[in-house]
Design a binder for these strands. Structure first.
Lengths: 204, 204
DNA sequence: GTCTATATTTGGATAGAC
DNA sequence: GTCTATCCAAATATAGAC
């Protein structure tokens, strides 16, 4: 069902609308980004928007889909394998988290998530499942393996995972806030590594 | 300079406006809470609002002042005294944090803070200084004392503080999100205590 | 101090010519 | 597909009668 000949191509108007919307939503949130602004950013009239999207909501849904599509490639790997090595498992996880934190595209989506977190129930639920539950699950598996192999002290894997994850999230939030104001993140640049070091000393 | 005879009293219209505004701002944020809604909640016309406040912004400023006025009574106490006992210091800190997390008034203000965090630069700065720097400072002092007295292993006090604080914040955020949707926080009710237990085992 | 009336702006959305 | 024109609703804010 081709809506129009260029809708999926780079130069297509639909693509331009999406791009402009993404930028504006990530900066001002849903309410703050008006159809007016989107249209003027693209360089077309508001009415032209509606040839490509039913309404503002539909644009937002397409943009917000990207929030949880970050390629956190951990599940593809063999968790068990890496967990047997102990610290490298934590390091790998933290470095992927760091990568996403500083990746411009993921950073924007994280902003949007934070802006809408308390205004959008669906995003809240996705936040809980995708940002929390999913990560706790992966980490728990790793910690469980480490315990089985006496690499770390015995403790509830869920608790350890919660502890490990919460700090990663907090660093990410701080980085995002600083970068939003174009402030330096120098003091936080090695925080992920420091976290891994401290944490490993804590549990080994 | 009495603006009017009842402005500061409970039954005063100004007080009613403030109360309604507080509730609406904490639920819908600055943009989402309209002067219309505030007026209708109070039971007066919009124009009457302007007899008490210059504009919407002024109301918001008065409400948002309360965000960082939570009576975190730690500074009044002798940190050194408590830190010498080790774990009780952490426990006390975490329990105060928990109290604030579950306190209805503080919960509302925290909501507002989260909603506006990425839309209001001043709140972002205050968040960094009041929610982060200030707490890291208090904790660092405590950890430093503990190290001096060989109660815990030697490590950068700032790092330890960061680690300890980040989890508290994360729990608070989760609790706030769950309660926003009227969901049960049972699974998190003892998370603060678990955090203290885990953490103390980590550093002692 | 509150009300009615009104000004003004902004935002989402549609109809119909081109 | 885009434009002009237009509509409608919502929101902030002011003026002036009571």
């Amino acid at each position: 069902m081709p809506e129009n000949t260029t809708s999926n191509k780079k130069g297509g108007t639909k693509e331009k609308i999406l791009k402009a919307s993404r930028a504006l939503f990530c900066e001002y949130g849903y309410k703050g980004a008006s159809v007016r602004k989107i249209a003027s950013t693209v360089g077309i009239r508001e009415s032209a928007i509606y040839n490509h999207y039913k309404n503002k909501e539909e644009i937002f849904l397409e943009v917000s889909k990207e929030i949880f599509s970050s390629p956190f490639s951990f599940e593809n790997e063999d968790i068990r394998e890496l967990a047997l090595k102990g610290k490298p498992f934590l390091h790998k996880f933290a470095m992927q988290y760091k990568l996403i934190t500083f990746d411009k595209s993921n950073e924007n989506m994280f902003r949007l998530l934070m802006i809408e977190l308390l205004q959008n129930k669906e995003l809240r639920e996705q936040f809980m499942s995708e940002f929390h539950d999913k990560n706790v699950k992966v980490l728990s598996e790793g910690f469980f393996v480490m315990m089985q192999n006496n690499l770390i002290r015995s403790y509830d894997p869920m608790i350890i995972s919660y502890e490990f994850l919460s700090t990663l999230f907090y660093i990410r939030l701080q980085v995002t806030l600083l970068r939003f104001d174009s402030l330096s993140t120098n003091s936080l640049s090695t925080q992920f590594e420091k976290h891994v070091d401290f944490f490993w000393e804590s549990i080994k």
